[in-house]
């Protein structure tokens, strides 16, 4: 089978997702790192066009993808919800999706991120010891988002 940008991004997103799910016994920052990468590649896969052009390389596709997904009938079909319920459901995912998207260390060097140490108030902070309190995996909002990511990954080739 010939690899395309779509199949390659789909494959990478699914692999990142598998690693994310396998990292439960490691430090939380490593899980978040792979979650951020999986969600970005998931969105990039949906940016890939049929004629095989490479999606644009910029970061920040995940929140935009979530916003567009309320128009995605295949995704809607996976949830037993009315249109209004589904729209509210998707809108409810956006704040958590934004937090995940902002984990990418691009831009501001001194912001919490799961990869590189940063400085805050004169103190150097390692991702290993940072709580990432707003991104704890067991919360209802995060659980909904993770389930949604799983549903969307299943739609990819």
């Amino acid at each position: 089978m010939v690899e395309t940008w779509l199949t390659a991004f789909a494959k990478q997103a699914k692999s990142d997702w598998d690693v994310f799910r396998a990292l439960g016994t490691f430090r939380f920052c490593h899980q978040l790192h792979y979650l951020q990468m999986a969600t970005e590649k998931l969105a990039k896969a949906f940016l890939c066009v049929l004629d095989g052009q490479r999606p644009e390389g910029r970061h920040g596709a995940f929140v935009r993808f979530i916003q567009h997904s309320k128009l995605h009938r295949q995704v809607q079909g996976k949830y037993s919800m009315s249109r209004d319920q589904f729209r509210a459901f998707i809108d409810g995912l956006l704040p958590t999706a934004k937090l995940i998207e902002e984990l990418a260390p691009a831009g501001d060097r001194d912001k919490p991120n799961p990869e590189y140490p940063w400085e805050h108030g004169g103190a150097v902070i390692s991702p290993l010891t940072y709580s990432f309190a707003t991104l704890q995996l067991g919360t209802p909002k995060m659980t909904k988002l993770l389930q949604f990511v799983g549903v969307c990954l299943d739609l990819l080739p």
Partner: peptide, 17 residues
């Protein structure tokens, strides 16, 4: 979300209900 230099379109596959 505001567009950057170019519109971003997401591609959704066939198979609608």
């Amino acid at each position: 979300l505001p567009s950057d230099s170019r519109i971003v379109a997401f591609h959704f596959g066939p198979g609608f209900a």
